[in-house]
């Protein structure tokens, strides 16, 4: 075994997928490096082979698919999500959430949407809005291309760093006109990771909630899709203070095993899940009312 790892830069997605499938454990995909490199520097990971997919044209670009989805290449960096006209117009929730991601401009210019999702990190800011938007992901493993709901990928720990699959594209249905949206992120201080976050989408009809999507993150190992609980409480009602308080209580109750870490202790995280949910819903309702 060599002291130094080896590095491969395949020219096509097919080459990359074939190479990755041929490696036993120890191969790792690198693109922006914003998740991988800190893990390596801290000694958490010690890959033997780096497969650099940063040059693969197939993974770039934000397009409209024939079926009318927004297709976002896995190499799309956070800064593009923040600024791309199509994302801003059709997926404003995602564009906004990308601005709230940790790290400065340099990190946003390197970190990719694919890397963010593959990291499977409960504190990150890209998965909650995409899950609220019921996004799908496409990935390639060997010769096989698979498309599945993001929710399924997030539930499957084999899709983490070091996976043999390459995430290629994220597919999202454009947000309908008049849909209210909000992303609420609570941090203990400016430089901290989020302690709780919530992505909300709401459709109003005559001032009453007609449909709602709500995802809460950073409070448990996995994202919590609170859409059903929110719909049960809110559909057909006006979103007033009483409804907000009821929602906060219901969302906190969904947090069975809150995280307890440097971002804050469990009981507080559990309570904050409710607070960010309530605030995100309120902001989404206000935005829908204006729209």
């Amino acid at each position: 075994m060599s002291l130094y790892p080896s590095f491969a830069r395949p020219r096509t997605l097919a080459d990359a997928a074939t190479l990755l499938a041929s490696l036993a454990s120890g191969g790792v995909v690198i693109a922006g490096g914003q998740e991988l490199m800190p893990s390596i520097n801290q000694g958490v990971l010690a890959p033997e082979v780096y497969v650099d997919i940063g040059g693969l044209a197939e993974l770039r670009g934000i397009t409209e698919t024939p079926e009318g989805r927004v297709g976002i290449g896995a190499l799309t960096v956070h800064r593009e999500l923040q600024t791309d006209p199509r994302v801003r117009a059709q997926l404003p929730l995602l564009a906004h959430a990308a601005t709230r991601a940790g790290g400065g401009r340099q990190v946003h210019n390197r970190g990719t949407i694919g890397g963010n999702l593959v990291a499977q990190h409960p504190l990150y800011d890209i998965a909650p809005p995409l899950l609220a938007l019921e996004a799908e992901v496409e990935w390639v493993k060997g010769r096989e291309t698979v498309r599945q709901p993001l929710a399924a990928m997030l539930a499957d720990s084999r899709h983490g760093l070091g996976s043999e699959a390459i995430l290629t594209r994220v597919l999202v249905v454009p947000m309908a006109d008049g849909l209210g949206w909000a992303y609420e992120k609570l941090k203990a201080s400016g430089g901290a990771y989020g302690s709780a976050n919530a992505a909300a989408l709401v459709k109003l009809k005559e001032g009453r909630v007609a449909a709602v999507r709500l995802v809460v993150g950073a409070v448990a190992d996995r994202l919590i899709d609170a859409s059903e609980a929110a719909a049960a409480l809110l559909v057909g009602r006006r979103f007033d203070a009483e409804a907000g308080a009821a929602l906060a209580g219901a969302v906190s109750a969904l947090v069975a095993a809150p995280l307890s870490d440097a971002q804050g202790p469990g009981p507080w995280r559990q309570a904050m899940a409710g607070v960010v949910a309530q605030r995100a819903l309120a902001a989404a309702v206000a935005r829908a009312g204006r729209g």
Binding site: A188, S195, S260, G264, P265, G266, P267, W268, A271
Partner: peptide, 18 residues
Amino acid sequence: LSPARVWAAIHGRSGAAG
């Protein structure tokens, strides 16, 4: 005075300050 500690004081959750 972390947010968790301040919140615990306000809400009488002394054991929850972490």
